[in-house]
């Protein structure tokens, strides 16, 4: 088997005396959904920012196609095909879907010596790409604010895919969503994975992870506690690992297994 598209080996990240990540190893293959599970404070945000080039790791290696890389900026990670979709900051609600979709990479056409934004092309591509994701917009210039939370995540995912992302990092894409919207986003993840894109799905909801994940890694107190393949692990085991074992068992007992 060829090298994973993206591989993080024993990543550590220190902020002064605070150790935010104390050894994280995760890899993702093409067409695979790797779920990274962690409770609040486990280091998920730091992990995402390290992977997307916002932070540089203190120790450890990031490899793309088996080659060691150094992401000096968010832009460098994007150029390497690693796109991050943030939970709240994916879209600008006051701007149109089309303007959001092309933000930072607006298509231009020349007229005389001036360059104008090519809205015909931008709108057409936006409508087409959104349709592929199962969202039929009537017009590309409606404001993103009119879309639901799930649809906004989908626009962000469609944008990343269209601009050549090979690995998608999704930061809690389902945590603020209702049941139906969650289902929509999970089916989008499935669709993207079937197109050969690697997905790193970061969540604290084990059931959402179980619905689409191929492999599962638990992050606890800044460390990864090993990776399990689908079918080898149960919801309960993952939940125990996330919460740190013993306490969760006790809690679950007292709550009658409802957690």
């Amino acid at each position: 088997m060829s090298a994973p598209i993206l591989e993080m080996v024993d990543i550590e990240k220190h902020f002064g005396s605070v150790i935010a990540l104390a050894g994280v190893s995760v890899s993702v293959n093409a067409g695979e959904c790797h779920c990274l599970l962690g409770d609040n404070g486990a280091g998920k945000s730091t992990f995402i920012k390290t992977l997307s080039g916002v932070h540089q790791p203190t120790h450890g290696e990031i490899r793309v196609d088996g080659q060691k890389v150094n992401f000096s900026s968010a832009r460098a990670a994007i150029d390497a095909g690693i796109a991050t979709v943030y939970q709240d900051l994916a879209m600008i609600p006051l701007m149109s879907v089309s303007r959001n979709f092309w933000m930072g990479r607006e298509p231009q056409k020349k007229m005389g010596f001036l360059k104008w934004m090519d809205f015909d092309h931008a709108n057409a591509v936006t409508l087409e790409e959104m349709a592929k994701m199962g969202i039929n917009l009537r017009e590309a210039d409606q404001a993103v604010g009119t879309l639901s939370g799930g649809e906004r995540q989908t626009v962000a995912i469609a944008r990343a895919v269209y601009f050549g992302a090979r690995v998608l990092i999704l930061d809690e894409p389902t945590s603020a969503l209702g049941v139906r919207q969650t289902a929509n986003v999970l089916s989008t993840i499935n669709r993207v994975r079937n197109n050969g894109i690697g997905v790193v799905f970061i969540t604290h909801n084990v059931r959402h992870a179980m619905a689409v994940g191929d492999r599962f890694t638990v992050l606890n107190r800044g460390k990864t506690l090993g990776t399990a393949v689908r079918g080898e692990v149960t919801v309960e085991e993952l939940q125990d690992l996330m919460a740190g074992g013993q306490e969760m068992v006790e809690l679950e007992g007292s709550l009658g297994g409802t957690v």
Binding site: Y86, L89, M91, I92, L94, R99, W102, M103, G104, M117
Partner: peptide, 20 residues
């Protein structure tokens, strides 16, 4: 294109910065 960036910078600067 620059106009789009003006809207983006005011609408949600962090989101705009994330996409370059």
């Amino acid at each position: 294109r620059f106009g789009n960036w003006i809207y983006a910078a005011g609408g949600e600067p962090q989101a705009a910065a994330y996409v370059g």
